[in-house]
């Protein structure tokens, strides 16, 4: 049972962080390989708030997320001001996450340096994670279907046209980045209180690549796709330990293969709405004859 719990909790945390990446990469078209950095920011902030200042866990999670969101402006503002250069942003995210890890690794005073930050109790339980995932999905859905989210999608499809049609690029991208980093930060907070400690080594480029993998495999402009893959990607390596050595190699090859043959990912452009759920339900559970009936009915 403990094993299943671990998968649910780690899978849920991965879902929340991957939803953050889905918002910035999947919906806004900005490539990130540094979201582990935002997880670290949120995680450490949350841990310090709870252990040192005795802030309630839920509030500390939110403040940790907000902190990660604010820090994202350090790279968001300079990178987005130079337009049409998505590359700047990708490199800046990597640079920021490496810088954060370096600072955490060498600062022993408050955050414990390379030894990590310890002394947290196990507050991240299965119900907490399940509630957090449901809220995260709900709010992500609300955002991407809102006028803000649609402006993000427009930017991802044609930045010049979006700007010429009056969309403020800097503002819209910063909003998406803030929310995205907020999600990563909350995921980091949850992780610290599951592991009961935090170490800079949790937040390497490998974790960022894992998050990117969830979104690339799950599909761009989709929430449900990355949600499923984020969970599966945590569950599968746990179930098949031997796979772990080959995991990143396989991910890498899959990145290439998916871009070549199905760049929209498994569920790209699939909106998470009830129409989709109904279609899926029909496809899976409706008996064959009934399906034919509806098709005839439609005609």
């Amino acid at each position: 049972m403990g094993y299943l719990n671990a998968i649910i909790i780690l899978g849920g945390i991965n879902i929340i962080a991957a939803l953050g990446v889905a918002i910035i990469t999947g919906y806004t078209g900005l490539f990130t390989i540094g979201h582990a950095g935002f997880m670290a920011l949120g995680g450490y902030a949350c841990a310090i708030l709870v252990t040192t200042f005795h802030v309630p866990f839920a509030i500390a999670l939110i403040i940790g997320g907000l902190f990660a969101g604010l820090c994202s402006f350090i790279i968001g503002v300079p990178a987005f001001r130079s337009q049409l250069r998505g590359d700047y942003f990708a490199i800046a995210t990597l640079g920021l996450s490496e810088a954060i890890r370096l600072i955490l690794n060498t600062t022993y005073k408050v955050v414990g340096g390379a030894f990590g930050f310890m002394g947290m109790s196990n507050l991240t339980t299965v119900p907490v994670v399940v509630i957090a995932v449901i809220l995260a999905l709900f709010f992500a859905h609300m955002f991407v279907t809102s006028q803000y989210g649609k402006n993000c999608i427009a930017i991802s499809q044609d930045e010049v046209a979006a700007q010429m049609m009056g969309v403020n690029l800097l503002r819209t991208k910063l909003i998406a980045l803030f929310i995205s980093a907020f999600y990563a930060g909350v995921a980091g907070g949850l992780m610290g209180f599951y592991m009961a400690y935090l170490s800079p080594s949790f937040f390497t480029i490998t974790r960022s690549s894992d998050l990117l993998a969830a979104v690339v495999f799950g599909g761009i402009q989709s929430l449900i796709g990355p949600t499923i893959t984020a969970f599966v990607l945590v569950a599968v390596p746990e179930l098949l330990r031997v796979f772990s050595e080959w995991r990143l190699i396989v991910y890498g090859l899959l990145f290439v293969i998916i871009m070549l043959f199905r760049p929209q990912g498994l569920l790209g452009y699939v909106e998470m709405n009830f129409a989709f759920a109904r279609r899926w339900w029909n496809a899976v559970f409706t008996p064959h004859q009934a399906k034919q009936g509806t098709i005839k009915g439609d005609q």
């Binding site: 990117l212 761009i220 990143l248 190699i249 890498g252 990145f255 290439v256 070549l260």
Partner: peptide, 29 residues
């Protein structure tokens, strides 16, 4: 293997970057 066909069909830059990142992950690991 990883870029040519994307380049030929003028895929968005995001796709090129992801494919390149994939090649990188695979080779390094």
């Amino acid at each position: 293997l990883a870029y040519r066909s994307l380049r030929l069909r003028k895929a968005p830059r995001l796709f090129m970057m992801i494919s390149a990142m994939g090649a990188n992950l695979a080779i390094v690991n």
